[in-house]
Design a protein around this nucleic acid. Sequence first.
DNA 1: ATGACTGCAAAGGGTTTGCATTGAA
DNA 2: TTCAATGCAAACCCTTTGCAGTCAT
Lengths: 139, 139
Amino acid sequence: MATVTNQVEERKPVTRNTIQRALVLEAVQSLHEHPTSADVYEAVRAKHPNISRATVYRNLGVLADKGEVLRVEVAGGADRYDFFNEPHYHARCRQCGMIFDVDMPYRSDLTEDVIDSHGFKIEGHQIMFDGVCPDCQKK
Amino acid sequence: MATVTNQVEERKPVTRNTIQRALVLEAVQSLHEHPTSADVYEAVRAKHPNISRATVYRNLGVLADKGEVLRVEVAGGADRYDFFNEPHYHARCRQCGMIFDVDMPYRSDLTEDVIDSHGFKIEGHQIMFDGVCPDCQKK
DNA sequence: ATGACTGCAAAGGGTTTGCATTGAA
DNA sequence: TTCAATGCAAACCCTTTGCAGTCAT
């Protein structure tokens, strides 16, 4: 007899523990400067030379979905990944493109500042500051 | 990535008034739904079929630099252009990707909420809300 | 006459996807 | 045994660039 599976219910596949997945997570957790997928790929490749880019991308996606890492989408640049997975804000250097954490309390209530959302259901927000990082100011 | 800021004075070339430029500006000003470069390209092509994508991109760049249109960079998607060129905030629909203006006062003082910028010189910020737009809520 | 601007095609970057195979459960 | 995950290559999307010719100034 067929198992009764709910049509509506979203069935998420069971994730498996592969070495590749573990290594990707480990890489993100050891790289504290908001690594790009390319950075992660290079780091993992040092230990596991045969890993493919696709696998890194897929695992970063899985880990971000599970909330084990934070994906920081950057407009006009590669996505960054953050081992610090609590919501927080970032700043991007206009010159070198580096991403920095911003020391500012997370405003989970920011939506209340919206006067009229015109029926749009706001569920989250990101703030990206931009400017010049300490290193680039010296140049 | 890095916008090369010249130490020496940056001499910007004299801009010329081409039909292509005028048509691109006209298109952005007539399309009020945050058009992508592709949208602008299509709109201009209706009047001027021989225009190339490269010309549209280059002109959107020039117009954005001159402040005649606002470029809204979208993480993980095509850039949008806005005829309303005062700084303001946006919301992106998680389902259809559409960009909406958010009715919330611009916080030019937001930088003051930063506790410690660790030497980073903050010069600007963007806020992107995300959620579900009215149309997608109906589906 | 100058050089900003154009169209075209090719290249670039970041990311995703199709497919046959492998391997964790 | 199953089907999630892998490696590879090709495809994808958006954007930029090199080039030779054009046109606004």
